[in-house]
Amino acid sequence: MPTNPSRLAYFPGCAMKDQARPDELGTLQALALLGYEVEEIPRWNCCGTVYSLAQDDLMRHVGPVRNLVRVQGMGEKRVLTLCAMCYGTLTRSARFVEEPERLERINAFMDTEDDFRGGIEVVHLLTLLRDEVGYEKLASQVKRSLDGLKVATYYGCVLLRPREFAVDDPERPEVMERVVEALGGTPTVFPERMECCGAYLTVGRSDVVEDRAGRILRSARGNGADLVVTTCPLCQFNLDKRRPAGAPSLPVLYLGQILAWAMGVDEPAVAALLTDEPATGKPVPSGV
């Protein structure tokens, strides 16, 4: 069944619907401007956020697979996530059940759902922009150039690890830098861009996360960045809200927010950072 290529099944994940709502709003508007009909999958459930590495822990895959069943029910072949954690969890489960025996057991357990037949691809905002939209088309859609704004591109870990489903070369990724370039910004490549932010230690050991966040922000600042972008609402929360006293105050945004701003969407988080110079109309960072 040929599916409408512009229709895009979307798995938001809990963060995008709770503390990261501002990230979602502009990103979805930008995707609409890029020609996508984004459709939230019905009755989705939490992806589980951290996947089990045990080979026989089938239970932890029930949640992610149930979401894939919903995508299948929409008649779609791919599902978009905006969050690095969701991307990792859904992708891992999609691969996990490629083994027929596991799939059979999970299907037998989920007796209130249609059987999952496999074959759903999980895409992340970054892979969508690179592999479907393309950097050139992206650049051609820019209404307001970031005009050389120095953007530190922070990957964190789950986008690039494990290697089997990294969104890019796990040692030398470039997808986020290329996106920033397409939007007219100057990517700031900094050594800590692939360091873990501390992830869920933010719940019980925020001291560890503060330490990580401080190192990452200092490195970004030290390399001349005006702001940091992430493609994970958790990284964003950790870098921003767990920022230790004395760490550089540079803003931490979600990539979709600068994408939206560049495409002309009203994006208050970016607008707040930039003061248009009346003479040139150029965005310049304010108060960073």
Partner: peptide
Amino acid sequence: RCVACNTCTKACPQKLEVMD
């Protein structure tokens, strides 16, 4: 800790969407 197993929904005598 919810693993989205849907067991709660199946148990509910009021036929509520408990997992949801």
